[in-house]
Nucleic acid binder design. Sequence first.
DNA 1: AAAATAGTGTCTTTGAGACAATATCAG
DNA 2: CTGATATTGTCTCAAAGACACTATTTT
Lengths: 245, 245
Amino acid sequence: MTTKKTRPQAPSFDFPLPFTTVDVVIFTVADDALKVLLVQRPQDKKSEPFPGWWALPGGFVDVAVDQDLLACAERKLREKTGVLTPYLEQLGSWGGAARDPRGWSATHVYFALIPSRDIELAKGANAADVAWFAVEDVLADPRLAFDHAAILQTAVERLRGRVEYTSLPAFLLPEPFTLPQLQRIYEIVLNRAVDKSGFRTRMLAAQFLVEAGHVEGSSNRPAMGYRLADRRTPVVFPRTFSPRD
Amino acid sequence: MTTKKTRPQAPSFDFPLPFTTVDVVIFTVADDALKVLLVQRPQDKKSEPFPGWWALPGGFVDVAVDQDLLACAERKLREKTGVLTPYLEQLGSWGGAARDPRGWSATHVYFALIPSRDIELAKGANAADVAWFAVEDVLADPRLAFDHAAILQTAVERLRGRVEYTSLPAFLLPEPFTLPQLQRIYEIVLNRAVDKSGFRTRMLAAQFLVEAGHVEGSSNRPAMGYRLADRRTPVVFPRTFSPRD
DNA sequence: AAAATAGTGTCTTTGAGACAATATCAG
DNA sequence: CTGATATTGTCTCAAAGACACTATTTT
């Protein structure tokens, strides 16, 4: 993490400043499972905390490069996955004296949804230290650097919560996609079955899909393909999926 | 903003750090209107940006005093209002090169809901520079310091959004309160009328209110008083108030 | 024709919206 | 009793849940 161009800090203050970082929780669905992208922290350098541990991709804000927090998050995402314009939403921020052994730090966390086919994991020297993990496995054995386990936990809760009443899962699929494919994504993220008929009615009534011709499935009856009318913002449904107790 | 106790910064880095601040959007309802607490920035000191402008209460994180971001937000809130344990939720963070003339800065924003009777505005020397403003007025003429107008806008949208399907407005009332009083708060925040019958059914079905004996109103029929079963977390309703187009 | 998946129809239930009706207090 | 406010009841409607049924493809 080096600064290419240094800029003089405006007035100097007589009190210590916390570190400012940005982390990105990058989700995708592959192999019928919700996955999250993790990077392995350097093993060798002893100055770096949590050597060899897995962590969310992220790092220090570079005030000479990043115009704002969102731009910084987009940069981190691009550097690790090559993806340019995914669904990206701010999750929140975590900051305190104890989360980083180097001192008081605060991280601004974003979460991203990307179709698994769009991904081209960071190549070159550091290719080996980036990998997808099944969210279920990571949460069951949450040994992540810093407070990243808690952050991931919050991100998954936020994702599951949103999926109950928005079209978010559509951002996890490459276009065009079929309604059965989309339903499958909902079921994977929510970890429960969803009724076919009600699902179709809800999706089509929400008016966010545009037909894109039939897609030839591997076999059997072909299904209608759809694209998103708006690739930036999810649609909000009038009710959640299950008001059941 | 001075640090009482300085702590040596762990390792020194060769790149400039952004400033880290915390701001709090403090809402209450008084005089039949949604209000927000603002503080006036110092007029005299020329080193301070936006002299004389109104701003959200907040300021630099004090790494010697604040254990974490939430504790910092609670401190700011306590210093301005004397309130100890209100409803407090993280709103998000704003950071970039342009928002503060002194340099790259990032602020972590919380929003608080407090009953207007609990408030004791900051006394002493700086009593005059803290005041309640009608949210409607501020949004109509949004001349606030930094990017605080945008932050307030987001906070109001978040509040209005949550109020559609949660019991949040209950945190704006002192206990015990009556259902008609609570309904009035909903109407003020949402800025529209709410049906009485449906409102009562919804509130009572959600099981978050406990009866607290009759409250003698100014006249007419007395209403049942209620307290919150859980003073920390709001209840989520199965649907929003108006799915109408 | 059989298997498999895509897509539709029907009935029930939940909870909101509209609005009328009744209850209980002060004066 | 009257006025005002609190509280309840009735009818309708939108959308979800359950589940059976039909449609279209491949083999």
